[in-house]
Design a protein around this nucleic acid. Sequence first.
DNA 1: AGATTTACATACCGACCAGTCGGAATATAA
DNA 2: TTATATTCCGACTGGTCGGTATGTAAATCT
Lengths: 241, 241
Amino acid sequence: MASKDHTPRRSAPPAGAARGRPRKAPVSQEGEGEEKRLGRPPLVSDPREEILRQAAKMFAQKGYGASSLAEVAATLNYSKGAIYNYFATKQEIYDAIIIRTLEGLNRAGAEAVAQGASPRERLRLFMIGHARYLAENYDSFVTMLVGYSGMASAALKDDALRLRDAHEGLLRAIIAEGAADGSFRAMDVAMTGRAVLSLLSWMARWYRPDGAMGAEEVADFYCDLIASGLLPREPAAREGR
Amino acid sequence: MASKDHTPRRSAPPAGAARGRPRKAPVSQEGEGEEKRLGRPPLVSDPREEILRQAAKMFAQKGYGASSLAEVAATLNYSKGAIYNYFATKQEIYDAIIIRTLEGLNRAGAEAVAQGASPRERLRLFMIGHARYLAENYDSFVTMLVGYSGMASAALKDDALRLRDAHEGLLRAIIAEGAADGSFRAMDVAMTGRAVLSLLSWMARWYRPDGAMGAEEVADFYCDLIASGLLPREPAAREGR
DNA sequence: AGATTTACATACCGACCAGTCGGAATATAA
DNA sequence: TTATATTCCGACTGGTCGGTATGTAAATCT
């Protein structure tokens, strides 16, 4: 039997060789057309996705430690054991949520940066893109920011750190560029970036997708506040040039 | 379950560990002088305080769920059972940490507000006071902001919410006053206050007491950033360097 | 000297949970 | 039909943890 060591071809855990493995081979890893697969079909299509979704929901609500896989399984009409066909450990589920969320956030930031003309405009697009991604991936985002905060594998932890730094790097580049061409004041770039990300990150603690204010609206307000400041302003140019 | 009034062990309420409001330990409460107490003396003076300190440390590091009372006890050379002489449940320990931390934060904010002359100055004092309190009560603060986030008793939850709102209310009053007398721009008071608290709260995620930058220093930077903004102040943005 | 009160340790219980194992169910392929 | 691959269930294990019961050590009071 050429049963591979459970490496679910998703995202990118290249270095992280999962130690534990489900008892059987992973789900179909095809990349091309829809091919008929052998064996009993899953109860839900793409169980891996559903498990991640439900787990993120529970992690966000009750935290990692207080969430049991049995409960996750129950909401999918699964037994607990079935989950282990798709993930080797509970930790692996958590890790997958974190990594994929950071990847998506990074992607959102990169797209925003590519579309803006001036640093001022890019900053706004970055913040709004960040907030929109938060709103659209609420549970995963909350899990990433407030839940448990511990990845087991050092390799995965490095991946997560790299992704986070890349996202922050995009922001710092915007600020540095704005400072260089005079459209921003010259300030400590790292601390300014930290401030912007603090505003956005803390949204995970109070923002609710069904609340009165939209996430992009909040980001817009924050961007204006951080750009123009609280002090009154003499008649000055609002737009970046 | 078992809603019997769990006073610690025997009769007296020496630790005040009962339902309802947390009360101070009688040992530390001065007033009627040192009275000789009966029975075997504690291994450490003020065990209640030590337990709260150690528990906050562990909660901050590993989270509520991942922290065991046995481990807390071990660091104090206690047995697990001994803790139950001072607290009825693990939850009660958590609740006590949250409440006392919020009370202290509220006090710090009130002191800051009382000392500033102008809204601009009060805002700075408020932010610095908040940051200083964070630095001086780091473990409790982190526990309050990132750990577990669930209080059992509805009454205590209300207490916590009330304290949090009071703190935020102090800040909003500063902003509203500044907007009224023209020293601040007219902006949405609630959202502006939220932004300020977001900056400060997120410090619990990255600030380290032994780090390079002091907490008050950070608050000072944030205050300047939020006040003056990122855009250049003067229309003629010809920054000579 | 008791008697009493407080502060602990030890041992234990019950609940819960991550993870495992054998096998049953359901699909395709020959 | 038989063989094989895949999914899933249900029962089980090993361990952890919150909380309790019981006894004992050290202090004061009478």
